[in-house]
């Protein structure tokens, strides 16, 4: 079975998923940034009382706020970005939906929700790349990690 077929048939549950960081809207941006730093993640999802996603706040937003000299004491809810429908996927969705979602929404992180719409995990570019590598071992894993186009000295010199 080829890679293309795998992507079409296998589900999001088979992707390497990460624990999603969820916060409430009233948390300050500074605290959200601290949470992202501690967990080495570039995204938090802002959720309601039922853990359903209201929006996301990413390192991209941090960059914009820093450029605009906005105070990071503001509540994260005031600067979050709404998540479009294609920004959420379910465990049973095919892997290709993640790829399409990332492309359509131009998001790097997608929210994985359960049947009730609650945030259960996070996936995105890194998970997708890991999936590719796992499912494409012969050609990808054998690639050297470093590039060197030519030798520094002549052969035997």
């Amino acid at each position: 079975m080829g890679l293309r077929e795998d992507i079409m048939n296998e589900t999001v549950s088979e992707l390497p998923l990460r624990r999603a960081l969820t916060v409430h809207a009233e948390l300050s941006i500074n605290q959200a940034c601290e949470l992202m730093r501690e967990n080495k993640l570039g995204c938090v999802f802002v959720v309601d009382e039922q853990d359903r996603p209201l929006g996301k706040f990413t390192e991209r937003q941090v960059l914009k706020l820093v450029c605009d000299c906005v105070s990071l004491d503001e509540p994260v809810g005031s600067r979050m970005v709404p998540i479009p429908e294609s920004g959420c996927v379910r465990m049973a969705d095919p892997v290709v939906k993640v790829l399409e979602g990332m492309q359509q929404t131009r998001l790097r992180f997608l929210c994985v929700v359960d049947g009730e719409g609650k945030v259960v995990a996070l996936t995105g570019q890194k998970g997708l790349m890991e999936y590719f590598t796992e499912h494409f071992p012969r050609q990808i894993k054998v690639q050297m990690m470093s590039s060197k186009m030519h030798m520094n000295t002549r052969e035997g010199a």
Partner: peptide
Amino acid sequence: RTVYATDCPAKALNLMAIGGFR
């Protein structure tokens, strides 16, 4: 970490997935 324009795309994917470079 870098790739050459003449490397194959699989190499870039490998760096991203295994090396963790975005």
